[in-house]
C-alpha cells in the first residue's frame, strides 16, 4: 500500500513537471499564474498522499498552508500582476 501511495505521489510530481511547461511558455501572464496555481493544487494532493504514506500528521497541516497560500498568491496577482503597459502582451498566441 505504501509503495502504491508513493507511486501516486510520483505520478503527481510528474504532472507538476508537465505544468512547468505552461509556466515557461506563457504566453500571457494569466497562463503563467494559473500554471503556478497548478503547483499549489497538485502540491496539496501530493502532501495528502505522502501524509498517509508516512503516517505523518504535520504533512496535512502543510497541505492546509499550501491551499491557503495559493489563494494569497492569486489574489495578489489579480490585484497587482496586471499592468497596462505598452509592452504587455495581450493576445493569446497559439501554443
Amino acid at each position: 500500500m505504501t509503495a502504491f501511495l508513493v507511486g501516486v505521489a510520483f505520478f503527481l510530481v510528474a504532472n507538476l513537471a508537465g505544468g512547468l511547461v505552461r509556466v515557461i511558455r506563457g504566453p500571457t501572464q494569466a497562463d503563467r499564474v494559473i500554471a503556478a496555481q497548478l503547483f499549489g493544487t497538485t502540491g496539496v494532493a501530493i502532501l495528502l498522499v505522502l501524509s498517509v504514506a508516512a503516517d505523518s500528521r504535520p504533512l496535512m497541516d502543510t497541505a492546509l498552508i499550501f491551499a491557503l497560500l495559493a489563494v494569497v498568491m492569486t489574489v495578489v496577482f489579480v490585484k497587482r500582476g496586471w499592468v497596462r503597459a505598452p509592452g504587455t502582451p495581450t493576445a493569446p498566441e497559439d501554443a
Binding site: P27, A85, P86, G87, T88, P89, T90, A91, E93, D94
Partner: peptide, 22 residues
C-alpha cells in the same frame, strides 16, 4: 484590447518595453 497578429507576438511586445528589468 490591442489586437496583435500572432506573427509578431513573440518579438513585438518586447521591442516596446521600456524597462530593462521587466
Amino acid at each position: 484590447s490591442s489586437p496583435s497578429p500572432s506573427g509578431d507576438a513573440p518579438t513585438g511586445p518586447d521591442a516596446s518595453s521600456p524597462s530593462p528589468l521587466l
